[in-house]
Design a binder for these strands. Structure first.
Lengths: 342, 342
DNA sequence: TTGAAAGCGCTAACAA
DNA sequence: TTGTTAGCGCTTTCAA
């Protein structure tokens, strides 16, 4: 055992193997070990081998907190998402995480639960970790959180939405365009009595607003809206159709703010022997992985969450390597996937 | 602007506001600011107010890497999961994350993609962050990764399975018991020709093995097995039923290794006009949030992933506060949820 | 209740 | 190619 330099003070530290220990064992200075790890080309073959050997024998794992502190690069990316439970953000996070991981970055997860108060606390916690980059679902409205985020000077990707004034980079699509396109699609199928089943979040409201405007523009009847609030469940979708049928039995097309709600509407329709899509067309939103294989296959709006994650990771990494990102604001668009339900 | 002490060397550091800056502004020493933040009761009311004020004015956010390095407590918990995309682990992670966050911890996400090679790399990356605790889905088989993990001396919760020799703490249930219970349940309904549709992972195989043994024990026909490998999709479930029907049209009950596969089997059954459950019983696994509201409602095995996450967080935190965890090994059991499909 | 000194484990800057 | 020195921004230890 190489003995450590004894200070007069009591011992501190975690007791784990350090770069020092490895350096002693290999008979080189600490910085040489550091270089063997981080820029091997700067170290001679012979020394590199000795260092590798010492690392292997000690099972040394570098302390990234220390490294991050010293270099001001944490190799950490924070991802801020409303929810993970069967949500459309799953694929985004998985793609982001795996692209980053392969490049040596790690992903810190932050869940807001669709709560602004929680989001504010979360953002301070995130900034405290000094991540090299931040991925945010949605765009950050003006306010305290936005100011702090911008002041932190960390590369940021906002997503899932569009704005002329992002904090930094942006990868998204237009919710208004989606609402309008769905309305036109449904009206193009000859539907006359349109309704909306929606969660309470603001992006959904914007889709709905544009949907309603498009319907009004051609003089059709008022669009019925059923708001499920935070209950983004299949069950809520079933109840929504029940409620809608009570209010207006002639409804012949429903635009849902998520695929899961749409599945609920379809399920309830089946239970009531309402033919989909003949009597009732149902459109979802998100195109989560399995809805195309159901019977009837769900017609929905595809937004390619996986691509958002992959692109965000690439933009962030480019920026961290000092490259300029050629297209920091991207509109990925969307597509209406025509299947059986509408 | 308070001027910083000028070293002869070129400037380093991130340029962000530090505890020093706040201390200068408040006219106290850095350690007092630290105490005002971490143990306010040790600081006089007057000083505390001045410090708070300085923090507010500078929008200071403490650097957790520095704090973690100095204190050997990162306030970070790592969660290692196979996948997040519409998986049964969603609720576990969400519960874990939110319990921890409310206690001032943050969650680092690690995805293995069911790949052992990736898992090994991931674990080293995780250890490098010096998390205060680690949550692992599954139990770690003997080998290099397990040794390194144990050597790191970090509190660990393994989960979703049982073993007499966990690394540390364990919150799970018996996959054998589940396989056996499902077989008995199905046979109790008078089913005679049982089959299994399964993903390739080892835990599923253990459920299947026990299922098959229980069926053989009473002398019923060989259990047909259809393995979908890594394709844990609804689509794979549909194809599985098609394949099974080709091999043995008299199959009258199928145990699926996930709810999504079960949904696929049911969907295909409907497409083929096979009555569920009269002609064909279908059991899932996981009880993910919406399967109980479908038509037919899915009968499945409930394992309460949310509770695993909450308990794991509590165990980890208790340990970090120096409390002994009274029951470090817990068998949460499971329940068979009888609904319409079986 | 407050502060001074030392150091956590690593890397940037400078030097040889 | 390798090493020396001086921090990164915080908290622990010891002292008043």
């Amino acid at each position: 055992m190489a003995d450590k330099p004894n200070s007069k003070r009591a011992r501190r530290g975690s007791g784990a193997i350090t770069l020092q220990d490895v350096a002693h064992l290999a008979g080189v200075s600490p910085i040489t070990v550091s270089r063997a790890l981080n820029s091997p080309s700067q170290v001679s073959q012979a020394v590199r081998t000795r260092v590798q050997d010492a690392i292997e024998r000690t099972a040394y794992v570098p302390n990234r907190m220390a490294g991050g502190l010293a270099s001001s690069r944490s190799r950490l990316i924070a991802a801020v998402v409303p929810s993970m439970v069967f949500s459309v953000f799953n694929e985004t996070i998985e793609a982001l995480n795996s692209t980053l991981f392969d490049a040596g970055y790690q992903c810190m997860l932050g869940l807001t639960g669709y709560s602004p108060e929680r989001e504010a606390r979360l953002l301070d916690a995130v900034i405290g970790r000094r991540p090299d980059g931040i991925f945010i679902t949605g765009i950050m409205p003006p306010g305290r959180s936005r100011n702090r985020l911008m002041a932190a000077g960390i590369p940021i990707v906002e997503s899932w939405d569009l704005t002329p004034t992002p904090m930094d980079m942006l990868i998204g699509f237009s919710h208004q365009d989606i609402g309008r396109a769905v309305a036109q699609y449904l009206m193009g199928k000859g539907k006359q009595r349109l309704a909306v089943v929606t969660a309470g979040d603001e992006r959904a409201q914007r889709r709905n607003g544009a949907f309603r405007d498009a319907v009004h523009a051609v003089g059709l009847a008022e669009v019925l809206v059923h708001n499920v609030g935070d209950a983004r469940t299949l069950h809520a979708g079933r109840e929504a159709l029940a409620a809608l049928m009570r209010r207006q039995p002639e409804v012949d097309a429903i635009f849902c703010s998520s695929d899961l709600l749409a599945l609920g509407v379809i399920t309830e329709a089946r239970a009531r022997n309402i033919a989909v899509p003949q009597q009732l067309s149902v459109m979802g939103f998100g195109d989560v992985p399995f809805v195309g294989d159901m019977v009837p296959a769900l017609s929905t709006v595809q937004v390619n969450g996986g691509q958002i994650g992959t692109l965000a990771a690439q933009h962030l990494m480019a920026r961290l390597q000092g490259h300029a990102v050629p297209q920091p604001i991207m509109n990925l668009g969307f597509s209406i996937v025509e299947r059986e339900s509408a």
